[in-house]
Design a binder for these strands. Structure first.
Lengths: 200, 200
DNA sequence: CGCTAACGTGACCGGATGGTCAACTTGCTA
DNA sequence: TAGCAAGTTGACCATCCGGTCACGTTAGCG
Protein backbone atom coordinates (compact mmCIF):
# COMPACT_ATOMS: atom_id res chain seq x y z
CA UNK A 1 0.00 0.00 0.00
CA UNK A 2 2.45 2.65 1.21
CA UNK A 3 6.08 2.65 0.12
CA UNK A 4 8.64 0.35 1.66
CA UNK A 5 9.58 1.02 5.26
CA UNK A 6 12.95 2.52 6.01
CA UNK A 7 15.59 -0.04 6.94
CA UNK A 8 16.15 -0.34 10.69
CA UNK A 9 19.36 0.75 12.25
CA UNK A 10 21.50 -2.23 13.31
CA UNK A 11 20.94 -1.84 17.03
CA UNK A 12 17.24 -1.27 16.50
CA UNK A 13 16.91 -4.44 14.44
CA UNK A 14 18.70 -6.44 17.11
CA UNK A 15 16.53 -4.99 19.86
CA UNK A 16 13.42 -5.80 17.88
CA UNK A 17 14.44 -9.44 17.67
CA UNK A 18 15.37 -9.54 21.33
CA UNK A 19 11.99 -8.07 22.20
CA UNK A 20 10.04 -10.56 20.11
CA UNK A 21 11.93 -13.45 21.68
CA UNK A 22 11.54 -12.09 25.19
CA UNK A 23 7.86 -11.39 24.68
CA UNK A 24 7.29 -14.88 23.37
CA UNK A 25 8.85 -16.43 26.45
CA UNK A 26 7.12 -14.09 28.83
CA UNK A 27 3.69 -14.65 27.25
CA UNK A 28 4.26 -18.41 27.29
CA UNK A 29 5.12 -18.37 30.97
CA UNK A 30 2.72 -15.77 32.34
CA UNK A 31 -0.03 -15.69 29.75
CA UNK A 32 -1.44 -12.62 28.07
CA UNK A 33 -1.14 -10.63 31.25
CA UNK A 34 2.63 -10.63 31.14
CA UNK A 35 3.59 -7.01 31.64
CA UNK A 36 5.39 -4.90 29.09
CA UNK A 37 7.85 -3.91 31.78
CA UNK A 38 8.81 -7.54 32.39
CA UNK A 39 9.19 -8.16 28.68
CA UNK A 40 11.47 -5.15 28.38
CA UNK A 41 13.55 -6.29 31.34
CA UNK A 42 13.90 -9.76 29.86
CA UNK A 43 15.04 -8.28 26.57
CA UNK A 44 17.50 -6.03 28.37
CA UNK A 45 15.98 -2.76 27.15
CA UNK A 46 13.88 -0.01 28.67
CA UNK A 47 10.12 -0.01 28.53
CA UNK A 48 10.02 2.93 26.17
CA UNK A 49 11.88 0.89 23.55
CA UNK A 50 9.04 -1.61 23.43
CA UNK A 51 6.62 1.09 22.41
CA UNK A 52 8.99 2.49 19.80
CA UNK A 53 8.87 -0.86 17.99
CA UNK A 54 5.26 -1.75 18.69
CA UNK A 55 2.78 1.05 19.16
CA UNK A 56 0.64 -0.98 21.55
CA UNK A 57 0.85 -4.27 23.39
CA UNK A 58 -1.70 -5.65 20.96
CA UNK A 59 0.57 -4.95 18.02
CA UNK A 60 3.40 -6.74 19.76
CA UNK A 61 1.15 -9.74 20.19
CA UNK A 62 0.08 -9.54 16.56
CA UNK A 63 3.72 -9.61 15.47
CA UNK A 64 4.37 -12.76 17.47
CA UNK A 65 1.25 -14.43 16.19
CA UNK A 66 2.16 -13.58 12.61
CA UNK A 67 5.58 -15.15 13.05
CA UNK A 68 4.08 -18.35 14.41
CA UNK A 69 1.39 -18.75 11.80
CA UNK A 70 4.09 -18.30 9.18
CA UNK A 71 6.05 -21.10 10.83
CA UNK A 72 2.99 -23.37 10.63
CA UNK A 73 2.60 -22.50 6.96
CA UNK A 74 6.19 -23.51 6.35
CA UNK A 75 5.55 -26.81 8.11
CA UNK A 76 2.51 -27.44 5.95
CA UNK A 77 4.39 -26.67 2.74
CA UNK A 78 7.22 -28.99 3.73
CA UNK A 79 4.70 -31.85 3.49
CA UNK A 80 3.27 -30.66 0.23
CA UNK A 81 5.03 -33.17 -1.99
CA UNK A 82 5.39 -36.03 0.46
CA UNK A 83 4.81 -39.49 -0.99
CA UNK A 84 2.13 -40.69 1.46
CA UNK A 85 -0.75 -38.18 1.78
CA UNK A 86 -1.96 -39.67 5.06
CA UNK A 87 1.48 -39.61 6.64
CA UNK A 88 1.94 -36.06 5.34
CA UNK A 89 -1.16 -34.81 7.12
CA UNK A 90 -0.25 -36.60 10.33
CA UNK A 91 3.28 -35.29 10.10
CA UNK A 92 1.97 -31.75 9.72
CA UNK A 93 -0.29 -32.08 12.74
CA UNK A 94 2.53 -33.59 14.75
CA UNK A 95 5.04 -30.90 13.85
CA UNK A 96 2.48 -28.16 14.44
CA UNK A 97 1.53 -29.50 17.85
CA UNK A 98 5.16 -29.99 18.77
CA UNK A 99 5.87 -26.40 17.93
CA UNK A 100 3.00 -25.35 20.15
CA UNK A 101 3.91 -27.57 23.04
CA UNK A 102 6.17 -25.21 24.90
CA UNK A 103 4.57 -21.93 24.01
CA UNK A 104 0.84 -21.96 23.83
CA UNK A 105 -0.15 -18.92 21.88
CA UNK A 106 -3.82 -19.65 21.35
CA UNK A 107 -4.87 -16.88 23.68
CA UNK A 108 -2.66 -14.48 21.81
CA UNK A 109 -4.24 -15.58 18.54
CA UNK A 110 -7.75 -14.79 19.62
CA UNK A 111 -6.61 -11.35 20.70
CA UNK A 112 -5.12 -10.47 17.34
CA UNK A 113 -7.90 -12.13 15.38
CA UNK A 114 -9.02 -8.74 14.14
CA UNK A 115 -5.60 -7.73 12.85
CA UNK A 116 -5.52 -7.48 9.04
CA UNK A 117 -2.05 -8.97 8.60
CA UNK A 118 -2.84 -11.84 10.90
CA UNK A 119 -6.09 -12.53 9.04
CA UNK A 120 -4.30 -12.64 5.73
CA UNK A 121 -1.52 -14.99 6.76
CA UNK A 122 -4.04 -17.16 8.52
CA UNK A 123 -6.01 -17.52 5.31
CA UNK A 124 -2.81 -18.56 3.63
CA UNK A 125 -2.23 -21.25 6.23
CA UNK A 126 -5.77 -22.44 5.64
CA UNK A 127 -5.06 -22.78 1.93
CA UNK A 128 -1.92 -24.81 2.51
CA UNK A 129 -3.76 -27.08 4.91
CA UNK A 130 -6.46 -27.48 2.27
CA UNK A 131 -3.86 -28.83 -0.12
CA UNK A 132 -2.81 -31.47 2.41
CA UNK A 133 -6.38 -32.37 3.29
CA UNK A 134 -7.51 -32.63 -0.32
CA UNK A 135 -4.71 -35.02 -1.13
CA UNK A 136 -5.46 -37.13 1.94
CA UNK A 137 -9.15 -37.22 1.14
CA UNK A 138 -8.51 -38.15 -2.48
CA UNK A 139 -6.23 -40.93 -1.28
CA UNK A 140 -8.99 -42.25 0.97
CA UNK A 141 -6.87 -42.03 4.11
CA UNK A 142 -9.26 -39.62 5.83
CA UNK A 143 -13.01 -39.64 5.69
CA UNK A 144 -14.77 -37.73 2.92
CA UNK A 145 -16.61 -35.27 5.16
CA UNK A 146 -13.50 -33.72 6.72
CA UNK A 147 -12.51 -30.26 5.48
CA UNK A 148 -9.44 -28.10 5.78
CA UNK A 149 -11.29 -25.94 8.28
CA UNK A 150 -11.85 -28.99 10.46
CA UNK A 151 -8.15 -29.73 10.46
CA UNK A 152 -7.31 -26.08 11.05
CA UNK A 153 -9.48 -26.04 14.15
CA UNK A 154 -8.11 -29.33 15.42
CA UNK A 155 -4.44 -28.34 15.24
CA UNK A 156 -4.14 -27.21 18.81
CA UNK A 157 -6.63 -29.64 20.34
CA UNK A 158 -4.06 -32.27 21.45
CA UNK A 159 -1.94 -29.68 23.22
CA UNK A 160 -4.95 -28.12 24.89
CA UNK A 161 -6.26 -31.41 26.16
CA UNK A 162 -3.05 -32.02 28.05
CA UNK A 163 -3.02 -28.59 29.63
CA UNK A 164 -5.74 -29.65 32.03
CA UNK A 165 -3.46 -32.20 33.62
CA UNK A 166 -0.70 -30.48 35.60
CA UNK A 167 2.54 -32.39 35.66
CA UNK A 168 1.76 -34.37 32.55
CA UNK A 169 4.67 -35.79 30.51
CA UNK A 170 5.94 -33.38 27.88
CA UNK A 171 4.81 -35.45 24.94
CA UNK A 172 1.48 -36.70 26.23
CA UNK A 173 -0.18 -34.66 23.51
CA UNK A 174 0.96 -37.34 21.04
CA UNK A 175 -1.53 -39.72 22.62
CA UNK A 176 -4.46 -37.41 21.99
CA UNK A 177 -3.28 -36.52 18.55
CA UNK A 178 -3.38 -40.28 17.91
CA UNK A 179 -6.96 -40.50 19.16
CA UNK A 180 -8.12 -37.49 17.18
CA UNK A 181 -6.36 -38.59 14.02
CA UNK A 182 -8.04 -41.98 14.34
CA UNK A 183 -11.29 -40.06 14.44
CA UNK A 184 -10.44 -38.59 11.07
CA UNK A 185 -9.89 -42.01 9.48
CA UNK A 186 -12.61 -43.51 7.30
CA UNK A 187 -12.60 -46.89 9.07
CA UNK A 188 -15.59 -47.20 11.37
CA UNK A 189 -16.57 -43.56 10.98
CA UNK A 190 -20.07 -42.67 12.08
CA UNK A 191 -21.99 -39.82 10.39
CA UNK A 192 -21.18 -36.42 11.92
CA UNK A 193 -24.10 -34.62 13.51
CA UNK A 194 -23.26 -31.20 12.07
CA UNK A 195 -21.91 -30.01 8.71
CA UNK A 196 -18.41 -28.61 8.43
CA UNK A 197 -18.18 -24.89 9.23
CA UNK A 198 -17.66 -22.37 6.46
CA UNK A 199 -14.32 -20.60 6.26
CA UNK A 200 -14.47 -16.79 6.49
CA UNK B 1 -13.51 -30.47 59.90
CA UNK B 2 -14.89 -27.53 61.91
CA UNK B 3 -18.48 -27.45 63.07
CA UNK B 4 -21.35 -26.53 60.77
CA UNK B 5 -21.48 -22.95 59.53
CA UNK B 6 -24.12 -20.63 60.89
CA UNK B 7 -27.22 -20.40 58.67
CA UNK B 8 -27.23 -17.35 56.41
CA UNK B 9 -29.72 -14.59 56.86
CA UNK B 10 -32.34 -14.58 54.09
CA UNK B 11 -31.03 -11.51 52.29
CA UNK B 12 -27.47 -12.78 52.59
CA UNK B 13 -28.38 -16.12 51.05
CA UNK B 14 -30.14 -14.41 48.16
CA UNK B 15 -27.21 -12.08 47.55
CA UNK B 16 -24.84 -15.01 47.57
CA UNK B 17 -26.81 -16.71 44.83
CA UNK B 18 -27.07 -13.48 42.86
CA UNK B 19 -23.33 -13.03 43.15
CA UNK B 20 -22.52 -16.55 41.99
CA UNK B 21 -24.80 -16.17 38.98
CA UNK B 22 -23.45 -12.73 38.12
CA UNK B 23 -19.86 -13.87 38.51
CA UNK B 24 -20.50 -16.84 36.28
CA UNK B 25 -21.86 -14.63 33.51
CA UNK B 26 -19.16 -12.04 33.90
CA UNK B 27 -16.35 -14.61 33.84
CA UNK B 28 -17.90 -16.28 30.82
CA UNK B 29 -18.03 -12.98 28.94
CA UNK B 30 -14.82 -11.29 30.00
CA UNK B 31 -12.65 -14.17 31.14
CA UNK B 32 -10.78 -14.44 34.42
CA UNK B 33 -9.97 -10.76 34.35
CA UNK B 34 -13.55 -9.74 34.89
CA UNK B 35 -13.40 -7.27 37.75
CA UNK B 36 -14.99 -7.79 41.11
CA UNK B 37 -16.57 -4.36 40.77
CA UNK B 38 -18.35 -5.38 37.57
CA UNK B 39 -19.54 -8.60 39.14
CA UNK B 40 -20.96 -6.68 42.09
CA UNK B 41 -22.69 -4.22 39.78
CA UNK B 42 -24.22 -7.06 37.77
CA UNK B 43 -25.49 -8.67 40.95
CA UNK B 44 -26.89 -5.35 42.14
CA UNK B 45 -24.79 -5.17 45.29
CA UNK B 46 -21.80 -3.17 46.46
CA UNK B 47 -18.27 -4.38 46.05
CA UNK B 48 -17.82 -4.88 49.76
CA UNK B 49 -20.59 -7.47 49.76
CA UNK B 50 -18.60 -9.66 47.40
CA UNK B 51 -15.76 -9.85 49.88
CA UNK B 52 -18.11 -10.54 52.75
CA UNK B 53 -19.20 -13.75 51.02
CA UNK B 54 -15.89 -14.72 49.43
CA UNK B 55 -12.70 -13.68 51.16
CA UNK B 56 -10.81 -13.37 47.87
CA UNK B 57 -11.56 -13.44 44.19
CA UNK B 58 -9.93 -16.86 44.03
CA UNK B 59 -12.42 -18.24 46.53
CA UNK B 60 -15.27 -16.88 44.47
CA UNK B 61 -13.86 -18.69 41.46
CA UNK B 62 -13.42 -21.88 43.46
CA UNK B 63 -17.08 -21.74 44.51
CA UNK B 64 -18.19 -21.48 40.88
CA UNK B 65 -15.90 -24.28 39.79
CA UNK B 66 -17.13 -26.52 42.59
CA UNK B 67 -20.72 -25.95 41.52
CA UNK B 68 -19.94 -26.85 37.94
CA UNK B 69 -17.93 -29.97 38.65
CA UNK B 70 -20.78 -31.13 40.85
CA UNK B 71 -23.14 -30.62 37.93
CA UNK B 72 -20.90 -32.77 35.73
CA UNK B 73 -20.87 -35.47 38.39
CA UNK B 74 -24.66 -35.47 38.42
CA UNK B 75 -24.68 -35.82 34.65
CA UNK B 76 -22.31 -38.78 34.86
CA UNK B 77 -24.38 -40.50 37.52
CA UNK B 78 -27.54 -40.05 35.49
CA UNK B 79 -25.99 -42.37 32.89
CA UNK B 80 -24.81 -44.87 35.44
CA UNK B 81 -27.51 -47.46 34.84
CA UNK B 82 -28.28 -46.74 31.20
CA UNK B 83 -28.88 -49.80 29.04
CA UNK B 84 -26.31 -49.13 26.31
CA UNK B 85 -22.83 -48.42 27.78
CA UNK B 86 -21.58 -46.80 24.58
CA UNK B 87 -24.58 -44.51 24.29
CA UNK B 88 -24.26 -43.71 27.98
CA UNK B 89 -20.68 -42.48 27.58
CA UNK B 90 -21.54 -40.46 24.49
CA UNK B 91 -24.55 -39.01 26.23
CA UNK B 92 -22.40 -37.96 29.17
CA UNK B 93 -19.87 -36.27 26.92
CA UNK B 94 -22.65 -34.55 25.00
CA UNK B 95 -24.42 -33.28 28.09
CA UNK B 96 -21.15 -32.16 29.64
CA UNK B 97 -20.08 -30.27 26.53
CA UNK B 98 -23.53 -28.74 26.19
CA UNK B 99 -23.31 -27.46 29.72
CA UNK B 100 -19.94 -25.92 28.93
CA UNK B 101 -20.96 -24.40 25.65
CA UNK B 102 -22.07 -21.00 26.83
CA UNK B 103 -19.79 -20.56 29.80
CA UNK B 104 -16.31 -21.79 29.36
CA UNK B 105 -14.85 -22.20 32.80
CA UNK B 106 -11.69 -24.07 31.95
CA UNK B 107 -9.52 -21.10 32.81
CA UNK B 108 -11.27 -20.81 36.15
CA UNK B 109 -10.62 -24.49 36.80
CA UNK B 110 -6.89 -24.23 36.36
CA UNK B 111 -6.86 -21.32 38.79
CA UNK B 112 -8.60 -23.22 41.54
CA UNK B 113 -6.73 -26.44 40.86
CA UNK B 114 -4.97 -26.09 44.19
CA UNK B 115 -8.14 -25.68 46.21
CA UNK B 116 -8.78 -28.67 48.47
CA UNK B 117 -12.54 -28.77 47.98
CA UNK B 118 -12.18 -28.52 44.24
CA UNK B 119 -9.60 -31.30 44.20
CA UNK B 120 -11.87 -33.59 46.18
CA UNK B 121 -14.97 -33.11 44.09
CA UNK B 122 -12.86 -33.44 40.96
CA UNK B 123 -11.62 -36.82 42.11
CA UNK B 124 -15.21 -37.81 42.65
CA UNK B 125 -16.06 -36.83 39.10
CA UNK B 126 -13.13 -38.89 37.91
CA UNK B 127 -14.49 -41.92 39.76
CA UNK B 128 -17.93 -41.56 38.24
CA UNK B 129 -16.42 -41.22 34.79
CA UNK B 130 -14.39 -44.34 35.47
CA UNK B 131 -17.61 -46.26 36.05
CA UNK B 132 -18.92 -45.18 32.66
CA UNK B 133 -15.65 -45.89 30.90
CA UNK B 134 -15.21 -49.31 32.48
CA UNK B 135 -18.67 -50.38 31.36
CA UNK B 136 -18.05 -49.11 27.85
CA UNK B 137 -14.69 -50.84 27.64
CA UNK B 138 -16.14 -54.09 28.93
CA UNK B 139 -18.85 -53.84 26.34
CA UNK B 140 -16.27 -53.41 23.60
CA UNK B 141 -17.73 -50.11 22.40
CA UNK B 142 -14.52 -48.19 23.09
CA UNK B 143 -10.99 -49.35 22.59
CA UNK B 144 -9.24 -51.17 25.39
CA UNK B 145 -6.46 -48.63 25.92
CA UNK B 146 -8.74 -45.71 26.83
CA UNK B 147 -8.90 -44.77 30.51
CA UNK B 148 -11.18 -42.59 32.60
CA UNK B 149 -8.43 -39.98 32.74
CA UNK B 150 -8.41 -39.83 28.96
CA UNK B 151 -12.13 -39.17 28.90
CA UNK B 152 -11.82 -36.66 31.72
CA UNK B 153 -9.27 -34.70 29.74
CA UNK B 154 -11.27 -34.90 26.54
CA UNK B 155 -14.50 -33.52 28.01
CA UNK B 156 -13.91 -29.95 27.04
CA UNK B 157 -11.99 -30.56 23.83
CA UNK B 158 -14.98 -30.23 21.47
CA UNK B 159 -16.00 -26.91 22.96
CA UNK B 160 -12.44 -25.59 22.89
CA UNK B 161 -11.93 -26.54 19.27
CA UNK B 162 -14.85 -24.39 18.23
CA UNK B 163 -13.68 -21.38 20.21
CA UNK B 164 -11.03 -20.70 17.61
CA UNK B 165 -13.67 -20.00 14.99
CA UNK B 166 -15.49 -16.76 15.77
CA UNK B 167 -19.10 -16.73 14.67
CA UNK B 168 -19.40 -20.50 14.60
CA UNK B 169 -22.85 -22.06 15.00
CA UNK B 170 -23.79 -22.69 18.61
CA UNK B 171 -23.76 -26.45 18.32
CA UNK B 172 -20.75 -26.93 16.07
CA UNK B 173 -19.02 -28.63 18.98
CA UNK B 174 -21.23 -31.66 18.28
CA UNK B 175 -19.29 -32.22 15.07
CA UNK B 176 -15.96 -32.41 16.86
CA UNK B 177 -17.36 -34.51 19.65
CA UNK B 178 -18.41 -36.90 16.88
CA UNK B 179 -14.90 -36.98 15.47
CA UNK B 180 -13.25 -37.46 18.84
CA UNK B 181 -15.72 -40.12 19.93
CA UNK B 182 -15.03 -41.99 16.71
CA UNK B 183 -11.39 -41.86 17.72
CA UNK B 184 -12.31 -43.69 20.92
CA UNK B 185 -14.02 -46.52 19.03
CA UNK B 186 -12.21 -49.83 18.56
CA UNK B 187 -12.88 -50.04 14.81
CA UNK B 188 -9.78 -49.11 12.87
CA UNK B 189 -7.91 -47.91 15.93
CA UNK B 190 -4.16 -47.54 15.52
CA UNK B 191 -1.82 -48.05 18.50
CA UNK B 192 -1.40 -44.92 20.59
CA UNK B 193 2.11 -43.51 20.76
CA UNK B 194 2.05 -42.81 24.49
CA UNK B 195 0.59 -44.61 27.53
CA UNK B 196 -2.37 -43.16 29.38
CA UNK B 197 -1.44 -40.61 32.05
CA UNK B 198 -1.68 -41.50 35.72
CA UNK B 199 -4.39 -39.87 37.79
CA UNK B 200 -3.20 -37.86 40.82
C1' DC C 1 -42.33 -3.85 69.01
C1' DG C 2 -37.40 -3.13 70.10
C1' DC C 3 -32.89 -4.68 70.20
C1' DT C 4 -28.80 -6.62 68.32
C1' DA C 5 -25.89 -9.32 65.63
C1' DA C 6 -25.44 -10.01 60.99
C1' DC C 7 -25.21 -7.77 56.80
C1' DG C 8 -24.61 -4.09 53.20
C1' DT C 9 -22.18 0.07 51.67
C1' DG C 10 -18.93 2.90 49.20
C1' DA C 11 -15.06 5.75 50.04
C1' DC C 12 -10.43 4.69 50.39
C1' DC C 13 -5.61 2.47 49.91
C1' DG C 14 -1.44 0.38 47.88
C1' DG C 15 0.21 -1.42 44.00
C1' DA C 16 0.52 -2.62 39.25
C1' DT C 17 -0.04 -1.58 34.28
C1' DG C 18 -0.19 0.40 29.52
C1' DG C 19 1.35 4.27 27.49
C1' DT C 20 3.92 9.20 26.97
C1' DC C 21 7.76 12.27 26.48
C1' DA C 22 11.70 15.37 26.88
C1' DA C 23 16.40 14.63 27.40
C1' DC C 24 20.16 11.87 26.22
C1' DT C 25 23.09 8.37 23.30
C1' DT C 26 24.60 6.18 19.15
C1' DG C 27 24.85 4.21 14.45
C1' DC C 28 25.55 5.86 10.03
C1' DT C 29 26.56 8.86 6.20
C1' DA C 30 28.90 12.45 3.74
C1' DT D 1 35.47 12.50 11.82
C1' DA D 2 31.65 15.64 12.40
C1' DG D 3 26.84 16.10 12.53
C1' DC D 4 22.33 14.53 12.69
C1' DA D 5 18.53 11.62 12.43
C1' DA D 6 17.22 7.40 14.47
C1' DG D 7 17.04 5.10 18.59
C1' DT D 8 17.11 4.63 23.79
C1' DT D 9 16.00 5.82 28.34
C1' DG D 10 13.46 6.06 32.73
C1' DA D 11 10.74 9.16 35.21
C1' DC D 12 6.03 10.25 34.96
C1' DC D 13 0.83 9.92 34.29
C1' DA D 14 -3.91 8.28 34.33
C1' DT D 15 -6.37 4.36 35.20
C1' DC D 16 -7.88 0.26 37.12
C1' DC D 17 -8.06 -3.52 40.40
C1' DG D 18 -8.23 -6.45 44.61
C1' DG D 19 -9.00 -5.76 49.16
C1' DT D 20 -10.18 -3.04 53.77
C1' DC D 21 -13.04 -0.78 57.06
C1' DA D 22 -15.85 2.45 59.77
C1' DC D 23 -20.42 3.35 59.55
C1' DG D 24 -25.31 2.90 58.24
C1' DT D 25 -29.14 -0.66 57.56
C1' DT D 26 -32.02 -4.67 58.32
C1' DA D 27 -33.65 -9.25 59.39
C1' DG D 28 -35.39 -11.92 62.79
C1' DC D 29 -35.75 -13.34 67.65
C1' DG D 30 -37.77 -12.71 72.14
Amino acid sequence: MTDAVRALRSDAARNRDLLLAAAEEEFAERGVDASVADIARRAGVAKGTVFRHFATKEQLIAAIVTKHIAALTAIARAQHDAADPGAALLEFLTAAADRRRQRDLTVLMSISAGDATVAQIRDQLHDDIAALVDRARAGGVIRADITATDVFLLICAPVHVVENLPGAPDDLWRRYLGIIFDGLRPEGASPLPRPAPEWT
